[in-house]
Design a protein around this nucleic acid. Structure first.
Lengths: 159, 159
DNA sequence: GTATGTGCAAAACGTTTGCAAGTTC
DNA sequence: GAACTTGCAAACGTTTTGCACATAC
């Protein structure tokens, strides 16, 4: 929607680098899907990705969509989330540090937060239990006290 | 396996009360599945539940197993977890306070922990963001520093 | 006796895969 | 041109459902 060409370029450059490192060939489908992913500042599902292309009149086969998502996961350019729905949510990682999520049980709104004391505590607890932490997902299911004055159902970040 | 009749009775009594409150009829299938669930002190899948009955020579149809699990969720006697596998894990709640999980990425071991400062912090963060917390799942994916000297793959609690 | 629960087999769901044709390097 | 990627349709594994029969209250 908005003009953010410079920013996208940086992410696309990163994509190219990592694809090359991991010996993935460059194809129009991969580029277009990755570009959409980097431009999308909400948590999205593969179904939404496919629908978005269909609306624009572009064709992406389901198989390719899922395969490119797998590639982006492998390249650590996106993260996968399970918010208790029957499908998975994804979000791109370049330019975004670790954060956790609050999911509104009424309107489905997803908000992100980062808290350093929380991260310290997670690390401490993991070590105390004899583990080395690799990744961690905290999801808080809640009700927004102001729900539903706003219609935005997927809200990711302010940018 | 062990004798814990007194304990089970208490949980089965709770089951009967809640089934009555919610107008669920009492059936042998429901009782037997609930009994198994209360006796199972690991995180289990529906597939494991069915297999366990099959091994004992008892028959539980898949449809009934899934339906009873839905009932137990409705009665808030079990909790559902997604640990990144393609099937869901369940655990019974009576007698167990809220806790979070550490999943070993090497051996699959699942351990539980409870930390009051963590709970306080979650609550504080949720409020600060304008939400009322309903439920919350923190899962830490890690490697056990002592993995794998022990063979236990599913370890839930010490009882 | 009526509403509800069960079991079977079939459907549904999101996701993955085999394969022939097309593309990249 | 050898290896990889695509698209289709079919397969997948888990979970749900339609329906006829059985059971609970």
């Amino acid at each position: 929607m908005e003009e953010r060409a410079a920013n996208i370029s940086k992410e696309m450059t990163l994509l190219k680098e990592r694809m090359h490192q991991h010996q993935y060939k460059s194809t129009p489908q991969r580029d277009e899907i990755a570009d959409w992913v980097f431009r999308t500042h909400e948590h999205f599902t593969v179904e939404e990705l496919i629908a978005s292309f269909r609306e624009k009149g572009k064709k992406v086969s389901q198989a390719t969509a899922y395969r490119v998502i797998q590639m982006l996961l492998d390249l650590k350019l996106i993260e996968e989330h399970d918010f208790g729905k029957d499908y998975k949510f994804y979000e791109h990682t370049p330019g975004h540090d670790h954060h956790d999520h609050i999911v509104c049980m009424d309107c489905g709104k997803i908000i992100e937060f980062a808290d350093s004391s929380l991260e310290t505590l997670k690390e401490k607890i993991t070590l105390k239990n004899g583990f080395r932490m690799k990744k961690h997902h905290l999801t808080i299911y809640a009700e927004c006290t102001t729900c539903p004055p706003e219609k935005r159902v997927l809200t990711r970040r302010e940018t």
